[in-house]
Deep mutational scan, measured.
Amino acid sequence: STHNELEKNRRAHLRLCLERLKVLIPLGPDCTRHTTLGLLNKAKAHIKKLE
């Protein structure tokens, strides 16, 4: 159905954006896999440090 396709595309776009963010944020050497929340929290902390 159309709704399923739209949802699939939305999730794919979100995944792509999170992958791009992961490249930009210093995550530390001990981190190989992150939850979305963990990645967003690290991004928030990094932005605050830059301010």
Results as ranks from 00 to 15, higher is better:
residue 17 C to V: 12
residue 21 L to G: 00
residue 19 E to L: 01
residue 35 T to H: 11
residue 1 S to T: 03
residue 30 D to H: 12
residue 18 L to G: 00
residue 37 L to K: 12
residue 14 L to E: 02
residue 4 N to H: 05
residue 26 P to M: 12
residue 3 H to F: 14
residue 30 D to A: 13
residue 40 L to K: 01
residue 38 G to W: 07
residue 31 C to P: 12
residue 6 L to N: 06
residue 45 A to H: 09
residue 47 I to V: 06
residue 22 K to I: 00
residue 39 L to Y: 03
residue 2 T to A: 06
residue 10 R to C: 10
residue 37 L to Q: 09
residue 23 V to E: 13
residue 47 I to E: 01
residue 16 L to Q: 13
residue 17 C to P: 08
residue 8 K to M: 04
residue 4 N to M: 07
residue 50 L to F: 14
residue 1 S to V: 07
residue 19 E to Q: 08
residue 20 R to K: 13
residue 43 A to G: 03
residue 12 A to E: 05
residue 50 L to T: 04
residue 20 R to F: 00
residue 33 R to T: 03
residue 1 S to F: 10
residue 18 L to Y: 06
residue 25 I to P: 06
residue 14 L to V: 06
residue 1 S to A: 03
residue 4 N to F: 01
residue 28 G to T: 14
residue 38 G to S: 10
residue 49 K to R: 11
residue 16 L to R: 13
residue 16 L to I: 09
residue 25 I to D: 01
residue 43 A to I: 08
residue 32 T to H: 09
residue 8 K to L: 08
residue 1 S to M: 01
residue 14 L to H: 09
residue 44 K to C: 04
residue 19 E to D: 07
residue 27 L to W: 14
residue 13 H to A: 04
residue 16 L to W: 12
residue 45 A to Y: 09
residue 1 S to K: 11
residue 14 L to S: 06
residue 42 K to P: 01
residue 2 T to N: 13
residue 10 R to D: 03
residue 11 R to E: 03
residue 26 P to Q: 13
residue 49 K to Q: 02
residue 7 E to T: 04
residue 24 L to F: 07
residue 38 G to M: 13
residue 20 R to E: 00
residue 23 V to D: 09
residue 38 G to E: 08
residue 37 L to I: 11
residue 51 E to H: 15
residue 20 R to A: 02
residue 16 L to G: 14
residue 33 R to V: 06
residue 33 R to G: 07
residue 18 L to E: 00
residue 8 K to C: 07
residue 30 D to E: 09
residue 30 D to K: 14
residue 27 L to S: 13
residue 14 L to C: 06
residue 10 R to N: 09
residue 29 P to A: 15
residue 47 I to Q: 00
residue 20 R to M: 00
residue 38 G to I: 04
residue 46 H to M: 13
residue 31 C to D: 09
residue 26 P to A: 15
residue 1 S to L: 03
residue 47 I to H: 00
residue 24 L to N: 01
residue 43 A to V: 11
residue 49 K to D: 00
residue 45 A to V: 11
residue 27 L to Q: 09
residue 34 H to Q: 11
residue 15 R to K: 13
residue 27 L to D: 04
residue 18 L to T: 01
residue 39 L to A: 02
residue 51 E to W: 11
residue 34 H to L: 12
residue 15 R to F: 07
residue 23 V to I: 08
residue 23 V to S: 15
residue 42 K to W: 08
residue 46 H to A: 13
residue 11 R to N: 04
residue 16 L to Y: 07
